[in-house]
Design a protein around this nucleic acid. Structure first.
Lengths: 190, 190
DNA sequence: ACAAGATTCTAGCACTGCTAGATTTTGAGG
DNA sequence: CCTCAAAATCTAGCAGTGCTAGAATCTTGT
């Protein structure tokens, strides 16, 4: 049965190849350039092969989104670990905004383009949960209150990330705003 | 010159007709159903007429977005006026979330679908400015600090609105979260 | 009443996501 | 080492998209 195993492995490799190619294409030319034909060209297979791996184009974008969320979750984790506990919130927030700025196409796939990825739901993929937990941990142990704080600060950060890209807030204003945000959430009355 | 005037007026009416039709179609069948052909059918003209009024499909959606933002701005204003000053923040926030919940297609056009509408920018359309100012006013007179608070709370509300739709947070959890958010921002240290 | 100009439509291009059916490749079993 | 079914892959095409050139129609000042 090694033949079957090999085929399974090759299939998995190609699955990843598609995701990687889609991400690269999106980062190079934007998501509107990620079409079935261009993507098929890039992975050197015909279009129908894509549908052997994913239900449709949206599923491919969602797969990229989940992969990028995992990547971001890891960076949030590292940032939080590297900082003193008193600065955990700032570290995670900064890492979040940095990721959004450094990977615009990825961020778009994650949080602004239409997606079937579930948030705060039973089917929420593990990487998304991990990313969320980094925010919760920055506030302290997991409980309802800290989860709610995490959710709210995430929302604010998303707002900032969007404004930063579309409205081009000046750099220093951006920093002041982050300071204010952290002050509000850090000094949250119990 | 009354003939030319009449034509100008009819042209303006048709312009509005297109926007209204696009909005109705989006609210009835979702934005993916708003195609040039369906829209042309609905306004009882051929497709090229649309391009006499708008540069492209995205411009039509943006026009709907701006119209809806104006509508929302008005509701925010009314909510703020009707409430005692001490409850201004809560009133505006609640009105915001209510609008998002009541007009999902409109909210999508405003803040989740790709758009060319500028935020926090010299070209920001007046209605968007007005809506933003309602948030600022809820915090007090217009100044950098209150503007920053407005921006941040708007971001959080947007996060809540998205989670509410995609992740279906239970109703009461939603209310608790809003209470927490208001507490954080109302008790903002100077 | 007519010609010039504005307006509107028909028809079609180049692209999209997606798929049925033909074609090739693969890998057991004889 | 063949054979030949099954698996994998591709070719070709459908129905739909946004958008537009050029033909047809309708308006209007003279």
């Amino acid at each position: 049965m090694t033949a079957a195993e090999r085929r399974e492995r090759q299939r998995a490799e190609r699955h990843q190849l598609i995701i990687t190619a889609a991400r690269e294409l999106a980062e190079a030319e934007g998501w509107e350039a990620v079409t079935t034909r261009k993507l098929a060209d890039r992975v050197e297979y015909s279009q129908p092969v894509l549908y052997g791996h994913f239900a449709n184009m949206e599923a491919i974008r969602d797969a990229v989104a989940v992969e990028c969320i995992a990547e971001m979750a890891e960076q949030l984790h590292e940032a939080r670990q590297a900082a003193p506990e008193s600065d955990a919130i700032r570290a995670v927030c900064t890492a979040y905004l940095d990721y959004a700025a450094a990977h615009p196409a990825a961020y778009q796939a994650m949080f602004t383009l239409p997606t079937k990825v579930k948030f705060a739901h039973a089917e929420t993929p593990a990487p998304l949960r991990q990313a969320f937990n980094e925010f919760v941990s920055a506030f302290g142990p997991y409980n309802d209150r800290n989860a709610a704080l995490a959710e709210l600060i995430w929302g604010s950060l998303h707002g900032m990330a969007v404004l930063l890209k579309s409205g081009r807030i000046p750099e220093d204003a951006q920093r002041q705003r982050l300071d204010l945000l952290i002050t509000l959430f850090a000094k949250a009355p119990a």
